[in-house]
Amino acid sequence: MAGQTTLAQLNDLLNKAELQGVSIIRRIAEPDSFAASFDSFRKYIDEIDKFYVLVDLVEGQLPQFEHGRREKLAHNLVNLRWQVCIVEVNATRIFIVRIGEHGRSVPLGARDFLTRRRDRLGEISSYYDCFGEAHTLPKIETELIDTVRRLLDNTIGKSQSLPDLLAEAMQHSSEDPVPQPPLRLRSPSEVASPLQKRKPIEFKVKVVYGRYYAEGMSVQAVAEACAESKMTMDDLAQQLGVNRTQLGLMLNGADAMSKRIYEDLREFLRKA
């Protein structure tokens, strides 16, 4: 009975993956639903990333099926994932072109997210190299990939990440100190009252199929903790065993973090 339940759950995951994939693919025909703003585009990419997580989960469980069905399901999942990859590339092109046509700028802290979009182009090309011939996948034109990469490079060059902004602000603060008011004697009531400490920003995550995604103002929370601890984002990234770009993507919610990194970050913020 337990085996039947497991297979029933797996079939449910297969249905969810198919429904999510079809929904993502259909939305490419409605650019206003995902390319009207940076937030709407990022939400669309979040949906795509969650779809990939779901497909990874399902593919890892396929050995539970008998060989014939397993091969067919694996082929269908590869094709569905590839169609979403094509949508991902085209959606990125549409969004970047739109913000350029309307003279819009990306928000502060968008550079890490856009850099991740550029890195995805190489990952998508590698995926085709691995599975394209075996599964007769339609090839994405090299010209399209190159065009999207140039568009991203241009937009990334005009954007700035939040850690960089924090570092600049701290540098300017040290170079141009604010004049301090003259010292004065405090009254007994002032001396007796406890110092009010600023409440730190909460570090929030959501768990999707066992993977941890940062939410809310996680970048700012960690940046402030770094400032309190007199260390840089690079120092923290090295301490966690990742590079600064990876840390930025995780704090922006673009990449999942392991449970170990999540717990280490919570402990770091608690001590800061």
Rank of each mutant, 00 (worst) to 15 (best):
A2S: 12
G3W: 08
T5N: 10
L7Y: 03
A8D: 10
A8R: 14
Q9W: 04
N11G: 14
D12V: 03
A17T: 07
A17F: 03
E18H: 10
S23D: 14
I24Y: 07
R26G: 00
I28L: 15
I28T: 05
P31L: 03
S33M: 08
A35P: 02
S37C: 03
F41E: 06
R42P: 00
Y44E: 10
I45A: 09
D49S: 15
K50L: 12
F51R: 03
L54K: 05
L54T: 13
L57Q: 10
E59Y: 03
P63M: 04
F65M: 10
K72W: 03
K72M: 09
L73W: 02
N76I: 00
N79Y: 00
Q83Y: 06
V84A: 06
C85E: 15
V87M: 06
E88N: 14
A91P: 04
R93K: 15
R93W: 01
I94G: 01
R98L: 01
R98A: 12
R98E: 11
I99E: 06
G100P: 00
H102E: 13
R104H: 13
R104A: 12
R104F: 11
V106F: 10
A110E: 05
D112R: 08
L114Q: 07
L114F: 07
T115S: 12
R116P: 00
R117E: 13
R120Y: 05
S125Q: 15
S125L: 08
A134Q: 13
T136S: 15
D146Y: 02
T147L: 14
R149V: 07
K158H: 12
K158I: 00
Q160I: 15
S161F: 00
S161E: 12
L162T: 07
H172C: 06
S173W: 05
S174C: 01
P177S: 07
P179A: 13
P181W: 06
L185S: 13
V191T: 10
P194H: 03
L195Y: 08
Q196S: 11
K197I: 15
R198S: 10
K199E: 14
E202C: 02
E215Y: 01
E215V: 05
S218W: 00
Q220N: 09
V222N: 04
A223E: 11
A223F: 01
A227D: 09
A227Y: 09
T232K: 03
Q239G: 01
L240Q: 04
T245A: 14
T245E: 11
L247E: 05
L247M: 12
M250I: 04
L251P: 07
L251A: 08
D255M: 09
I261E: 09
E263S: 11
K271L: 13
K271P: 00
A272I: 05
